[in-house]
Simulated scan of single mutants.
Amino acid sequence: MPEPDVAAHLAPVPPVALGAATVTAADLTGADLVGAELSAAQVEGSALDRLRAAGGSWRRTTLVDCRLDGADLANLRTADLALVRCSLREVRLTGAQLTGARLRAVRLEGAQASLSSWRGARLQHVVLTGCDLREADLSGAKLTDVWFEDCDLGGAQLDGARCERVRLSGCRLTGIGGVTGLRGAAVDADSGHDLLPLLAGALGIALVD
C-alpha cells in the first residue's frame, strides 16, 4: 500500500479556510475542528496528523493524499465522505458515522473504531491492521481488495455486505451478525474457528459434542 503523496513543503492553514475551495499542501497538524461542520471541503497533499475533529459533521468532504495519523475523529458524522490514498494510524473513530463513505488506497493501522458505522460504504484497496472494530456496522458495505489483519471484529454487523478479494488474517470474529456477508472472503484457520458456530447457526446445523 503506497504512502500518501503529502507535499514536501507545507504551509500552515487556519481551519476556517476549509470551505468549498480546494486546499493543497496544508499543514493542519493538531488543528482544532472539534464539533465543527465542513461542507464541500477538498484537501489534497496535506498533513492532518493529530487533527481534533471529535463530534464534528463533514458533508461532501474529500481528502486526497492526506495523512491523518493520530487524529481524533470519535463520533464524527459524515455524508459523502471520500478518502483517496490516505493513512490513518492510531486514529480514534469510536462511534464515527461513515455511512456511504468511499475509501480507495487507504491504510488504517491501530484504529480505535468500535461502534463505528460503515453502512453502505465502499472500500477498495484498503488495508486494516490491528484495528478495533468491535460492534462496527458494515451492513451493505462493498469490500474490494481489502485486507483485515489482526483486527477485532467481535459483534460486528455484516448483513448484506459484499466481498471481493477480501482476506482476514489473525482476526477475532466472535459474535458477528450477518456472517453470510463474508461470502467470497478468504479467512485463515485461526479466524475461521470463530466462524464455525455462526455458520452452523446460519445453516440450521446443531453442533454437538
Score class of each variant (00 low, 15 high):
residue 49 D to V: 06
residue 41 A to C: 08
residue 71 A to S: 06
residue 91 V to C: 15
residue 128 L to K: 00
residue 107 R to H: 11
residue 115 L to W: 14
residue 61 T to H: 02
residue 123 L to I: 03
residue 109 E to C: 09
residue 98 L to S: 09
residue 131 C to K: 04
residue 39 S to W: 10
residue 88 L to Y: 03
residue 50 R to V: 12
residue 110 G to M: 07
residue 62 T to P: 00
residue 92 R to F: 09
residue 95 G to N: 07
residue 68 L to E: 01
residue 146 V to C: 13
residue 130 G to E: 09
residue 68 L to G: 07
residue 65 D to R: 00
residue 83 L to G: 03
residue 149 E to D: 12
residue 44 E to C: 03
residue 105 A to F: 05
residue 94 T to R: 10
residue 105 A to P: 01
residue 141 A to E: 11
residue 60 R to H: 15
residue 146 V to H: 06
residue 122 R to T: 14
residue 63 L to W: 11
residue 66 C to I: 01
residue 102 R to W: 13
residue 139 S to T: 11
residue 99 T to W: 07
residue 94 T to K: 09
residue 108 L to C: 14
residue 92 R to E: 07
residue 88 L to H: 03
residue 109 E to F: 07
residue 131 C to I: 04
residue 63 L to H: 05
residue 47 A to T: 14
residue 72 D to M: 00
residue 45 G to S: 15
residue 73 L to W: 00
residue 52 R to S: 12
residue 100 G to I: 08
residue 91 V to G: 12
residue 64 V to T: 14
residue 111 A to E: 07
residue 147 W to C: 06
residue 89 R to D: 08
residue 90 E to C: 04
residue 135 E to N: 15
residue 146 V to T: 12
residue 140 G to S: 12
residue 131 C to H: 05
residue 77 R to E: 13
residue 69 D to I: 04
residue 100 G to V: 10
residue 48 L to I: 10
residue 63 L to F: 13
residue 102 R to M: 11
residue 147 W to V: 07
residue 59 R to Y: 05
residue 95 G to Y: 09
residue 47 A to E: 14
residue 118 W to G: 03
residue 103 L to F: 12
residue 114 S to C: 15
residue 125 H to T: 13
residue 121 A to L: 03
residue 109 E to N: 15
residue 54 A to L: 01
residue 137 D to V: 14
residue 75 N to Q: 06
residue 100 G to E: 13
residue 120 G to D: 10
residue 46 S to C: 09
residue 63 L to R: 02
residue 110 G to F: 08
residue 141 A to W: 09
residue 133 L to G: 02
residue 126 V to K: 03
residue 72 D to C: 02
residue 81 L to T: 05
residue 97 Q to H: 10
residue 88 L to M: 09
residue 78 T to F: 01
residue 59 R to N: 13
residue 125 H to I: 02
residue 73 L to P: 01
residue 129 T to M: 10
residue 72 D to S: 00
residue 110 G to S: 08
residue 137 D to L: 01
residue 39 S to T: 15
residue 50 R to F: 15
residue 74 A to S: 14
residue 135 E to G: 06
residue 56 G to P: 07
residue 79 A to Q: 06
residue 146 V to L: 07
residue 64 V to W: 02
residue 104 R to F: 09
residue 139 S to P: 00
residue 144 T to R: 14
residue 139 S to D: 11
residue 127 V to K: 03
residue 52 R to M: 09
residue 51 L to A: 10
residue 95 G to A: 06
residue 62 T to N: 03
residue 51 L to F: 06
residue 67 R to P: 00
residue 51 L to P: 06
residue 142 K to L: 15
residue 76 L to C: 01
residue 74 A to M: 02
residue 43 V to D: 03
residue 111 A to S: 14
residue 128 L to Y: 02
residue 86 C to F: 04
residue 118 W to C: 10
residue 111 A to H: 08
residue 80 D to G: 01
residue 52 R to W: 03
residue 109 E to P: 10
residue 121 A to H: 11
residue 95 G to V: 06
residue 57 S to R: 15
